[in-house]
Design a protein around this nucleic acid. Structure first.
Length: 260
DNA sequence: AATCATGTCAACCGCGACATG
DNA sequence: ACATGTCGCGGTTGACATGAT
């Protein structure tokens, strides 16, 4: 196969995205969508390769991204799905709305794998709920994470308690989050996010998935329109459902919690 | 306080699959 | 049928944060 001639490295930015770049990308996609990733940066006026733009959008800027720590249910689901699917992160991500394959992959490699191997040994280091904030910009002066609010990422990352308090409503979860150690969820986080859509530093950015979805209609990028080797013509999602149903019917695992 | 070791995660890289001419 | 372009995926990297010594 022919290699993707991506990223002709002349004059294109690499490394962490700046707030300005994020805003340009978001604004462009909001207005025009992303028909052609390769052509997008040129049209949008970004000094990035299309691949980088796509990755940034998929993994970070997409409105339906669920930020914050993974819930116990999500982690359990990842483990179970990984048993079924192996390292098919995108397929696993398709079963966890709001989570990206990259994020799931990171979680797996950072602690789920160890958790399995070490029989869930207690972590020595980072206390649960404390999420590291990266602040290494290639051009530090313009990167928001290194500026006024170093502990505030470009896009708000609600703590696990914030996430769970929303995503687990209605489910009989037994997850025990010590809420006192986390700030209570701010109403403003889940409401009226689009009012601050132009301010990528706002903690409300992309808070309300429904509203955002209305303004950022997805072109269903979660569906992989190709069949597997065994099942050509069947979408990955269909195949996922097939194997999942089979697994459940065989008594493999209990039903996955509804994260919606 | 300084240094080291380790954890985390955004971003990059390379490849294969698919689409198109 | 073939060549080329684009997309999406999984593996890996690298810089920073943070706990341990």
């Amino acid at each position: 196969m022919v290699r993707a001639p991506c990223c002709e490295k002349i004059g294109l930015n690499k490394g962490p995205w700046t707030a300005e770049e994020d805003q340009i990308l978001v604004s462009y996609i909001q207005q025009y969508g992303h028909g052609n990733w390769r052509a997008l940066p040129k049209h949008a006026g970004l000094s990035r390769c299309g691949k980088s733009c796509r990755l940034r959008w998929i993994n970070y800027l997409r409105p339906d991204i669920k930020r914050g720590n993974f819930t116990q249910e999500e982690e359990d689901s990842i483990i179970k799905l990984h048993e079924m699917l192996g390292n098919r992160w995108s397929a696993i991500a398709a079963k966890l709305p709001g989570r990206t394959d990259n994020e799931i992959k990171n979680v797996w490699h950072t602690h789920l794998k160890k958790r399995l191997h070490q029989n869930d040994a207690p972590k020595k280091r980072r206390p649960s709920g404390s999420k590291k904030k990266k602040s290494k910009p290639s051009n530090a002066s313009s990167h928001p994470q290194s500026e006024a609010a170093p502990s505030q990422p470009i896009l708000s990352q609600p703590s696990s308690s914030e996430v769970s308090s929303v995503t687990e409503s209605g489910s009989n979860t037994t997850v025990d989050f010590s809420l006192e150690s986390f700030p209570m969820i701010d109403e403003s986080f889940w409401g009226d996010p689009m009012s601050s859509i132009t301010s990528v530093e706002s903690p409300n950015f992309y808070g309300n998935a429904d509203m955002v979805q209305a303004q950022f209609p997805r072109d269903d990028d979660s569906v992989i329109g190709m069949g597997s080797d065994d099942n050509p013509g069947r979408s990955m999602d269909d195949e996922m459902d097939f194997w999942y149903d089979l697994y459940i019917s065989a008594g493999g695992v209990e039903e996955l919690p509804d994260f919606n």
